[in-house]
């Protein structure tokens, strides 16, 4: 166990995993369901990110002693970032819950996450159980330094530029965020929405649909201001940067 850095929130990755599903939605329309697409995009980090940064749980401090190994490696939970993990969960949606739509949508979201995370210096075991890490090394993986330094590093390197690409593309595809698109595509494609509409008004559903885009883009702006206006961390957009932080490697 390592020393936790104090956050008890449900921790997820930075903004790309919030924003990518809207881009896929733009191109796939009725062929996907948005909710499993988003769950798939979040899934690899859902079980692990809190333990990477650590939490206080009553008298206990819980944190992985080797966060990068725990998060992306084997032994560890690195299999959550593999293609076969997406296939396994998709098969559960398909065969157990009898929803091919949810299966395919989850698979697309989870594979997008696994492929996106090959961009950093640790990468992912895409072809698990083969434990080879596929990585581009475009930005530094600094999860082991704690969430504050990790945030500062991420929003100073190419990782934040990758997020920015998705954010700009999301605004370019603004129509997928409109009320008409929600009614004509999102709501119609998946019976989850009419089911939820029995208890939750349609306006709230529309807001929930837009929430991940709001969350991802607002968070990107907030962390960028925090890192560069408030704290003056230097930008380093060179390959593998920022080089002022110790980057983990497989």
């Amino acid at each position: 166990m390592g020393d936790p850095d104090g956050s008890q929130a449900l921790l997820l990755s930075w903004a790309a995993h919030d924003l990518e599903p809207y881009a896929f939605q733009r191109h796939l329309n009725l062929k996907v369901a948005f909710v499993p697409l988003l769950i798939g995009s979040y899934a690899p980090d859902m079980m692990t990110k809190w333990f990477v940064y650590g939490i206080h749980l009553g008298p206990w401090d819980l944190k992985a002693s080797d966060p990068a190994q725990f998060h992306r490696g084997w032994p560890g939970f690195g299999f959550t970032h593999s293609l076969i993990y997406g296939v396994a969960i998709a098969l559960i949606f398909w065969k157990v819950f009898d929803s091919k739509l949810w299966a395919v949508s989850f698979l697309i979201g989870q594979w997008a996450h696994a492929l996106t995370d090959t961009g950093d210096t640790v990468g992912t075991m895409l072809l698990f159980p083969w434990t080879h890490h596929f990585y581009l090394g475009a930005w530094a993986y600094a999860g082991q330094t704690g969430r504050i330094t990790d945030a500062a590093a991420y929003f100073s390197g190419l990782g934040s530029m990758w997020d920015l690409v998705w954010m700009i593309y999301g605004f370019y595809c603004w129509r997928v965020l409109t009320s008409a698109y929600f009614d004509g595509c999102i709501y119609r494609a998946d019976t989850f929405w009419p089911w939820l509409n029995r208890w939750v008004p349609r306006g709230a559903l529309l807001t929930l649909y837009r929430a991940a885009f709001f969350y991802g883009s607002s968070r990107w702006i907030a962390w960028t201001i925090w890192a560069h206006v408030i704290h003056h961390y230097p930008y380093d957009l060179s390959w593998g940067g920022p080089h002022w932080v110790h980057a983990a490697h497989p």
């Binding site: 929130a9 449900l10 919030d18 306006g203 709230a204 807001t207 929430a211 709001f214 607002s218 907030a222």
Partner: peptide, 27 residues
């Protein structure tokens, strides 16, 4: 949201807080 998050970064960390926030403020 951004103003609060810049001051209290913990506010930015939870997707549930983010969703609850947007549900309250935008709907």
């Amino acid at each position: 949201y951004i103003a609060i998050g810049v001051i209290v970064t913990d506010f930015l960390l939870s997707v549930w807080v983010g969703m609850a926030y947007v549900l309250v403020t935008a709907w």
